[in-house]
């Protein structure tokens, strides 16, 4: 325990004294968040998605250049959370559910539905609104998963690759530091930098009008997510031959970037085409973001499936990481 504390402290101090690390811990997430927060605003406010119960209406809305009509069995609640409209048309009454910050589009939608129904004057509209999200809420909360991923993976691969290259690992291998103490120290470092990374990110969020609901559960899942991905980083370094240790950095990039961009971090899952959508929906960054978004944006507790998913994945990756990342050959 004593050795873990001192080692973690040394790793933290060593890396946080380094300007490059500071850039990646603070500036990089902010930079990504800003780009996507603005991109999100630019993209999503031109055409809104409407979930309809009739394919004909969907096709008709697609010709409007204002809405995209899709049919889907997504629940009304989660559709609204994704900022989708939901329209249920029956013979002569229509229910419209709309995200609360999009009320100004309801008259246009009504007009289009009436046009589709050949101006049936007996049509009765019922309107409900529910909480949607703003671009900055979506992107800032999505960035949390990205931070857990990039700090976890790049933290472990970056730090340990550097220490291998510097032969510091050899020196530590000759010391009483035990294997698991080394791995745990690295992971504590990841947890600390993650906590540091989210501070400027939330400040940016607040500046953009998003007040995150930060609670204990949020911190728990943030740390679990970081542990998961530092386990992944440990596995990557662990299975890389030590004489070609730089390969672990390349592998980390190859694994991390698809996980960032093929996730729900910056774009809603439904925006991805066909089969990719399923990959996006069930990959770990998206699951973590579902939990995080639920907690800090919508204030809803995580689903049992998501909780189990993250717990199991953390357990598996941390164990594999601890097994593969060795401080020394002779043990």
């Amino acid at each position: 325990m004593r050795r873990i504390i001192y080692t973690a402290k040394a790793i933290i101090k060593d890396n946080l004294s380094n300007k490059t690390t500071i850039f990646f811990v603070i500036a990089f997430p902010l930079f990504l968040a800003m780009i996507f927060a603005f991109a999100f605003g630019a993209v999503n406010h031109t055409v809104e998605t409407v979930v309809v119960n009739q394919q004909g209406l969907g096709r008709f809305l697609n010709t409007s250049a204002m809405f995209i009509g899709i049919t889907s069995n997504i629940s009304v609640h989660s559709a609204l959370l994704h900022n989708y409209f939901v329209v249920n048309v029956s013979k002569n009454d229509t229910i419209i559910y709309y995200p609360s910050n999009y009320g100004y589009l309801v008259p246009s939608l009504k007009a289009l539905i009436l046009e589709y129904k050949s101006n049936d004057s007996s049509m009765v509209f019922t309107l409900y609104s529910g909480k949607g999200f703003t671009g900055s809420e979506f992107v800032i909360s999505g960035m949390i998963g990205v931070i857990a991923l990039s700090n976890g993976v790049f933290g472990v691969t970056g730090v340990s690759t550097g220490y291998y290259r510097d032969k510091l690992v050899d020196r530590l291998a000759a010391s009483p530091l035990k294997n698991h103490e080394w791995v745990i120290s690295l992971m504590i470092y990841e947890l600390v930098i993650t906590l540091i990374s989210i501070v400027p990110l939330f400040l940016l969020g607040i500046a953009l009008g998003f007040i995150p609901a930060i609670g204990v559960l949020f911190i728990v899942f943030l740390l679990l997510g970081t542990l998961t991905f530092s386990g992944l980083g440990a596995v990557i370094v662990g299975i890389t031959p030590k004489e070609k240790i730089f390969v672990s950095q390349i592998a980390a990039n190859i694994i991390t970037f698809p996980l960032i961009f093929l996730s729900n971090a910056f774009f809603p899952t439904v925006d991805f085409p066909g089969i990719i959508r399923y990959i996006v929906e069930y990959q770990p960054v998206s699951i973590l973001n579902d939990i995080i978004r639920g907690l800090i944006v919508y204030r809803v507790p995580p689903s049992p499936f998501n909780i189990l998913y993250i717990f199991l994945l953390t357990l598996v990756l941390v164990m594999l990481g601890g097994k593969t990342l060795r401080l020394r050959e002779a043990d």
């Binding site: 890396n15 020196r171 009483p176």
Partner: peptide, 29 residues
């Protein structure tokens, strides 16, 4: 490992820690 002191042929400390912090770390280790 607990009782032998090692000066490896290629030694590298924590590069962004000061000399004193490096020595302190190893003393504590």
């Amino acid at each position: 490992r607990e009782s032998v002191g090692i000066v490896p042929q290629e030694f590298q400390g924590f590069s962004d820690l000061s000399v004193k912090d490096n020595a302190r770390y190893f003393a504590e280790l």
